[in-house]
Design a protein around this nucleic acid. Sequence first.
DNA 1: CCTACCGATCGGTAGG
DNA 2: CCTACCGATCGGTAGG
Lengths: 206, 206
Amino acid sequence: MLVCYLCCMARIKTDSHTSRREVIIAKAALLFREKGFKAASMRDLAESVGVEAASLYNHIKSKTELLHELCFGVANRFMQKIEEVEQEKIPAAEKIEKILRFHIHEMIHHYEEVYVSDREWKHLLDPYLSNFQNQRRIYRKRLAAIIEAGIRAGEIEPIDAPTAVLILLHAVSGIESWHRSRHKISAEELENNMITILVGGLRPRK
Amino acid sequence: MLVCYLCCMARIKTDSHTSRREVIIAKAALLFREKGFKAASMRDLAESVGVEAASLYNHIKSKTELLHELCFGVANRFMQKIEEVEQEKIPAAEKIEKILRFHIHEMIHHYEEVYVSDREWKHLLDPYLSNFQNQRRIYRKRLAAIIEAGIRAGEIEPIDAPTAVLILLHAVSGIESWHRSRHKISAEELENNMITILVGGLRPRK
DNA sequence: CCTACCGATCGGTAGG
DNA sequence: CCTACCGATCGGTAGG
């Protein structure tokens, strides 16, 4: 379940746009998530695609290229979303809630890619590695800035903003455990429970 | 900084108890955290210990044995702590706070091992792998049971307990990012900020 | 897209 | 604790 049902319906119906390359990347996401980047071999990937290992190289340049595609695909979506939310004229606490809901949605509907981007990025090679680390740092600073604005406006508990960012982002990545567990509550229930606990924890209590 | 200063002072002073095996395990924790289990080679480890790769096998059986040692060392400490806290006669919310503070403390002072146990356990081999997964599942159930008791007692917001557990545990593991960041606030500040955000989010707001 | 194959590196052993 | 070395597996290329 790499891709969101709604997002990709058109593509699946017409079928012709799911190129071989996209299939390879999707299968790579699954494999890298299951085994980790280093432990997943190109022969594993070839088998799951249904070709010989050598044939993969007609569609991709290298194993790390697959990791670039996955990591930056995810990073770009998050960066785009935060830019969009920053410009809305709503209270900071609502901005945070919107961004959190986006994180939760991405984690639920694009699980494999988001997970890989989160846990395997350290295996990127160096022009890409430092690029990715920079994007991450910038993203967290922007999120912290929203929280700080919220604190100044009295909408958010006065706490250390970088610590709050760290908690929020990692808490959301915990959906990974939910995703693989048996007794799953529904996606909506999960989302609302998380928002209750996390955003609730940020609001002033009187 | 594998081990806690306080915990290990005696050992460092007398010096003779830090056996070669313990040094190897400590260096392995560092390497597995930096590179990941699969990407860290026994030759890397040998170099960081200061011997040839073959010599390591006079002190350990295999690479995976190092992973066992690290994962179960950590798991056992957490299991022991939760058993201890369960038996105290204090409100559920205080139990949760105590356990959270223990998690935070472990993450700060035994960073490498806790991190490896958290992220690399999937590379354990199968008698150990399922054993570890069982311990994890049991631990989370016990934590959820404390939260549920707290909800029934009206000390904790009525939310889905497994979701709360998932959020709490992953939020705490976010200390990893703090640990490697430059502008670190102090460990005590960090701990108190986390408790404010997390336990604050659990308490009823009126 | 395949067969055939490469150099490098891996975890681990033998033997001293 | 070392030197020497093993079989397996890796990412990737050549050539068709």
